[in-house]
Design a protein around this nucleic acid. Structure first.
Lengths: 131, 131
DNA sequence: CTAAATGCAAACTATTTGCAACGAT
DNA sequence: ATCGTTGCAAATAGTTTGCATTTAG
């Protein structure tokens, strides 16, 4: 593992966020890590290939990267675009039974408006009323 | 609905496949329907917006289009790339209970090797042995 | 000294858009 | 005559790659 890779890993592991490649790149710059966009992509891809990170795909969104490898699912706020982990439990057995065949994995991603955004939305509605 | 849109709709409704925009475009050409790639995209997007079709996103794959609007999920063969419908039942209630919040939807997509591909793979393995 | 890692710019894939020409009412 | 639809080519977004250069062992 190169110095740059180690720094990136650190940076991602010490964040709670599910960052896009661009966000990782930006955060590197903020932290004074000099790195190119191409290397960010290359190193993130390595992390995923090496199994120390997961790629999270949300329809219509750039890929995000997740330091948590343990099987779990994701929930996506369609307002603030934040992605969070959720733990639904393993559906593999249920799916294999329903499908009648071995499966190699699945992705479950849930869309909602997160509590903070919901609060913001209702306060905006209030604002409108009072105008 | 324009003539081109009606022809595309027909063509998609009379196929069992979950086609990408490119595949729809190709099929149009085969059937002698003169249409541009841009219009294929525009019309497909309209179909989705009008709720008469669904867009199916599989990580790392171009979007596919599904004539079946009724809630259901998808299974993807990582060998032949074919997408099929599966009916797992509605997980919304279970998810809302687990998450503790209203949700706006979810996508569940399962990855596997389809029976045909599995057969092909094992016959290839046989071939190797016998060489 | 060698091989791997990096930066840069260009390529690439999937998709969308601006705009002029076209076609139907 | 007008307005929505189309085709084309260019733009865009996200990601990957070729290649010359730098870096580390």
């Amino acid at each position: 593992m190169t110095k740059l890779a180690a720094e990136m890993l650190d940076l991602i592991r010490s964040s709670e966020r599910h960052m896009t490649a661009e966000e990782v790149f930006m955060l590197c710059k903020e932290k004074g890590i000099k790195i190119s966009f191409a290397s960010v992509y290359r190193i993130l891809t390595n992390f995923v290939d090496d199994g120390i990170m997961r790629k999270v795909s949300i329809p219509g969104e750039p890929d995000r990267f997740d330091k948590t490898v343990r099987p779990h699912d994701h929930i996506f706020c369609s307002r603030c675009k934040k992605v969070c982990d959720i733990d639904i439990g393993d559906l593999t057995e249920m799916l294999e039974k329903k499908i009648g065949s071995r499966i190699d994995g699945y992705t479950l991603s849930v869309k909602y408006i997160c509590p903070e955004c919901r609060r913001l939305e209702s306060s905006e509605a209030e604002d409108k009323k009072s105008v």
